[in-house]
């Protein structure tokens, strides 16, 4: 493989993986607090739409990002209310959000199809971008990508080195105990779901403001569901999330490169790659770990907490 093939491939890998990375980080926070938010696909697409529409109308990328975060927060708030306060079925609630979000974004997005809006452009980081191969791939990217790198580090430090991260993990692991130790389980869960939703919204915005740079029907195309699988693949760990998203960005990259080289395989099969890989990855993860505990899943994931109903 020559560098002229490799560098564009790695470049696409990073760029395609970024929206996933935001979403996976967001979902990791939510699931670490014990709330399974399957609405990613819907939150992402609404974030993508809100980001694009706002940036298009205002001309400001920053406003676009803020809008995407607000949209993500609002949709997640619905999920937080249903799963934390009502104690509804979290799987169904997530599915409902996907249906609602997809429909809403497609409906409101109609007028924006095919419009050219502002988009993030590459900002090279001086010196670092001169490193062979890696410099071009990692340090000549758009600001959102740098932001995602920093978020990985921040979230990792938050989860494992601070008291609040400890409280979050305890809430997802064993809410009864966390509650008895004075942690406000409801508050932690609401915050985690909402902040997670903001990050997921940003993931959508990276699609509409950078990677695809524009609006089209069903823009996210199942990326949200892939993200759900990647959270499991990365064992709910932000550092591993980075690697997992690279792998999936790579799969998308390979798909494009192969399409570009005109290989005889029909495009339909190439486009199946991410979905089939997701299934394979899930199988592989469970094959290699066996029990839920070893998988690293938070102990109280998808479990409703009600202080007074404990046995």
């Amino acid at each position: 493989m020559t560098l002229s093939f490799l560098i564009p491939l790695l470049d696409v890998t990073i760029r395609a993986g970024t929206s996933l990375l935001f979403a996976v980080l967001g979902e990791t926070i939510s699931e670490r607090a014990g709330v399974l938010n399957l609405g990613i696909e819907g939150i992402m697409i609404v974030g993508a739409f809100a980001g694009f529409a706002t940036a298009y109308e205002s001309g400001s990328l920053v406003l676009g990002l803020i809008a995407a975060m607000i949209a993500g927060a609002l949709l997640s708030l619905i999920h937080a209310f249903l799963s934390v306060t009502v104690g509804a079925n979290q799987v169904i609630s997530g599915v409902a959000l996907v249906a609602f979000g997809t429909g809403l974004a497609n409906l409101l997005g109609r007028p924006y199809i095919g419009k050219l809006g502002p988009k993030f452009s590459r900002v090279a980081i001086p010196l670092l971008n001169k490193i062979p191969v890696i410099g071009k791939v990692l340090f000549d990217q758009d600001p959102m990508i740098y932001m995602s790198f920093i978020l990985v580090i921040i979230i990792y430090l938050f989860l494992y080195k601070t008291k609040y991260g400890l409280q979050l993990r305890a809430t997802g692991e064993d809410p009864q105990s966390a509650d008895a130790m004075g942690v406000n389980v409801g508050k932690v869960r609401y915050l985690a779901v909402i902040i997670g939703g903001m990050l997921i919204g940003l993931g959508g915005a990276h699609l509409s403001l950078s990677y695809v740079a524009g609006w089209q029907d069903s823009l996210t195309a199942g990326r949200g569901w892939v993200a759900v699988a990647l959270v499991i693949f990365s064992s709910w760990n932000p550092k591993r999330a980075f690697l997992a998203c690279l792998i999936f960005g790579g799969i998308e990259g390979i798909q494009f490169r192969l399409q570009a080289t005109g290989i005889a395989l029909p495009t339909y099969f190439l486009r199946m790659l991410p979905y089939i890989s997701t299934i394979l990855v899930m199988w592989f993860v469970h094959l290699s770990s066996g029990t839920k505990k070893k998988l690293g899943a938070p102990g109280a994931l998808n479990k409703f907490f009600d202080r007074e109903s404990q046995a």
């Binding site: 080195k161 008291k163 400890l166 409280q167 692991e173 942690v183 102990g299």
Partner: peptide, 25 residues
């Protein structure tokens, strides 16, 4: 039923139970 988080260490459980501690562990 003890109010301890199984997957955390003794130290982490004690930090968890004491809200007066610093944010940075």
């Amino acid at each position: 039923h003890f109010s301890l988080v199984d997957v955390l260490t003794v130290t982490n459980n004690i930090i968890l139970g004491d809200n007066s501690r610093d944010a940075w562990i």
